[in-house]
Design a protein around this nucleic acid. Sequence first.
DNA 1: TACTAATCGAGACGGTACGTCAAGTCTTTAA
DNA 2: TTAAAGACTTGACGTACCGTCTCGATTAGTA
Lengths: 209, 209, 209, 209
Amino acid sequence: MTTDTTATSDCAAPRRGRPRSEAAEQAIFAAVEELMAGGTSLPELTIEGIAAAAGVGKATIYRRWPNKEALLVDMVSRLEEPLPSATGSVRGDLVAMIEYMRLRGLAKRSRWVLKAALGQMHSSPELHAAYRERVIKPRRQAARELVRRGIEEGELRSDLDEDLVGDLLVGPILARSVLWDDSDLEDPALAVKMVDALLQGLGGPAARG
Amino acid sequence: MTTDTTATSDCAAPRRGRPRSEAAEQAIFAAVEELMAGGTSLPELTIEGIAAAAGVGKATIYRRWPNKEALLVDMVSRLEEPLPSATGSVRGDLVAMIEYMRLRGLAKRSRWVLKAALGQMHSSPELHAAYRERVIKPRRQAARELVRRGIEEGELRSDLDEDLVGDLLVGPILARSVLWDDSDLEDPALAVKMVDALLQGLGGPAARG
Amino acid sequence: MTTDTTATSDCAAPRRGRPRSEAAEQAIFAAVEELMAGGTSLPELTIEGIAAAAGVGKATIYRRWPNKEALLVDMVSRLEEPLPSATGSVRGDLVAMIEYMRLRGLAKRSRWVLKAALGQMHSSPELHAAYRERVIKPRRQAARELVRRGIEEGELRSDLDEDLVGDLLVGPILARSVLWDDSDLEDPALAVKMVDALLQGLGGPAARG
Amino acid sequence: MTTDTTATSDCAAPRRGRPRSEAAEQAIFAAVEELMAGGTSLPELTIEGIAAAAGVGKATIYRRWPNKEALLVDMVSRLEEPLPSATGSVRGDLVAMIEYMRLRGLAKRSRWVLKAALGQMHSSPELHAAYRERVIKPRRQAARELVRRGIEEGELRSDLDEDLVGDLLVGPILARSVLWDDSDLEDPALAVKMVDALLQGLGGPAARG
DNA sequence: TACTAATCGAGACGGTACGTCAAGTCTTTAA
DNA sequence: TTAAAGACTTGACGTACCGTCTCGATTAGTA
């Protein structure tokens, strides 16, 4: 999302003029964090306020991001650590993934920026796309690969669409963390319960015949 | 959400002065629909623009709703038809509920207003609450009752938390309709596939062994 | 210069909406006076500063004048009292006119606004024209009529172009009051000296011979 | 006005480092001329624009002049050729001086820079002073000396203040060239008419008794 | 031949003001 | 009393310049 042309590290052309200040960039990120932590709601979060809090000129912000939303999406994608994965059994990995999402949903720091980007992402198509490309897609991709491994190893049914299975696993925790209430995430055993329920099926005696 | 004092029809005191124009109210709703249909993004949708499009004074809007978000939430709750339910088997009802959500997610008319309210709902706590009270809660309630019935009739497992089962059923379709892409909703058999997969479980031979 | 549509008092159509606040207008004028009196130079005189000093929104200023220059030209034309004239002899009237200009040039209140408009008037052709139409032309017109009367009554030579004579009379005092220094205007007898020197001619014995 | 420390040619200390580029200086002057010729109004004439048009860094301009006004005043004083003078009779010299001013007022190249400096000179006292010192004073000085010579040679009256006489001669042409319209300068015989009218006096038969 | 130092172009920096837009409120006349 | 209209104060928007400050690269004189 960054407009910074130096981002492409393999840039051969010698950059001219004064280089962008890394300090300014960090100050901006820090100011956003601080403001949001201080109870500023999203529409109240203005470029002018960010600039003032960061001790930075407005132009310094606009030079990097075209608008508030782009800044937020950029922050989202920066705070994405790689998903934890690839250790024990497929079931264990699924639990780990969902537990990771649960904790992310609980963490104040990532909560607002996640919801922010989600809420504002409908403003412009390109931001919507960016958000999906940066945040949504990697998660679904990771889930899908996990599902594929599960099918290969016989831990998951092979007669279902991989994408569908992925969404059945990831959808509920996402709904709870983004759409619904924080209190729905507090059970530490939630991930285990979810995965196990999904693996074993919800059907009762009548359905199981 | 409406501030309209005439809404309480059992108002004994004879209202004095010029009565509120029902035409104005309809014009406002129509203007919002029209503007959103015309490609206006949500931040671009201004009270001023709505008033102009509706041929109405701004005060006429503010007299009814305190702000833009309240107007939108009001529109959301007005377009909510009762969930279809209570006919055949529990499995059939679950499929019907999810199918209903799928079609709602596909319908252009409800899409934007749903996403709108979702996106803006983080602005103020009271709107957040209103949206949850009006839209989220009834759905989860309906799902929970369906689950309870399923458990009673033996179609669903009885050893699981009702809320958890509800979210496992509703989460995936919500994620697909709100968070992800429209293209993920196009399969007409989606609801059946989802419900059946959930009922039978995702576990393969290794898990089932 | 005023954009105010109510300015044309013979407007038959009944004006709708809230009328412009006369108080706001006066506050703006007062603020400009005060700021300039307080040593604010012309480029330092900003719309933002005026609005703040007047306790008025910027839009309230822009609703009336398109820019700072138009506001100033409007102020110029408003502080123009009618030129004093038409009493005693033509010589007496000429002295009165020049004395009037001398005092105007000395008066702090009119000095800055005169110079301001003069200096900025080259920005845009239309303001230039407005300034000429409102300020310059009436003065030259008054001078020309005085000259015509002088010619009729035999107090001025009849073989010269009226405009030329007018400029010979008015030019020096204008140059002193606008282009040059304030100290050049301090002699109370200046007007008499100027008029008499001009009437009698500058030529010495050699020229007169 | 130039800040250039190399300007003082008698500088003993051997300058070190790369010397200032004469080419850059010329490019700046040329860019200003070109921009003004291209219809750029004075407030539109920015340092940034000049630098871009000249293909020069902003600092290269600021290294030479502290601000836009200083640059303009410097340009004014550079385009000042010595006043033509000191030949024939005093009357002839007066005509020559006024004719010179008339042509200067008509010349496009000097017009804008003259008006520019005039208009902006009220910004800061020091620039005002500089303009007066560089442009106004030499003219008045030249006029005054001409007047003194005229008095000595008997061509001008000896009973009048020299400064007053100077201003009576110079004021009208200045007013026409700076304050008023270009069309007032078009008569080729203007200088002769002015000087003769002033020398002979404007008084008619009644005044002349 | 290297070193030193001021210059060059470019462009980012923290600011200020611009002129626009919308927010939510208030004040008109008309129904 | 409500309606439409439109002015009110407030404040953020995104842009343009201000005058200052790095950058890497020149371009002299000095060593």
